[in-house]
């Protein structure tokens, strides 16, 4: 009886650890950040195509 309880206990813990590990590794943050980024209007930076770069030292 005792051993099965101990077994159950560790099973539960192992499952819980697994869930925690997987969920914390999920890229939720990435999705939310992406959603957040698409919501805000980032200014577009583009080099002017006709700008002439300086080559002198």
């Amino acid at each position: 009886m005792e051993n099965i309880d101990r077994k159950n206990f560790f099973k539960t813990i192992g499952k819980g650890a697994l869930i925690v590990a997987l969920s914390s590794a999920l890229p939720i943050k990435f999705f939310s950040k992406a959603a957040h980024l698409s919501r805000q209007s980032n200014p577009k930076i583009k080099i002017h195509p006709s700008a002439v770069k300086r080559n002198k030292a």
Binding site: G14, A21, A25, K29, K33
Partner: peptide, 25 residues
């Protein structure tokens, strides 16, 4: 199997503790 699970979950948890403050990509 139990040990495998244990170590796997530990490893996964460790990798999940990557950026504690997400500063963007």
């Amino acid at each position: 199997k139990f040990f495998a699970l244990l170590s796997a979950s530990a490893a996964l948890t460790a990798t999940a503790c990557t950026n504690y403050r997400d500063k963007g990509e």
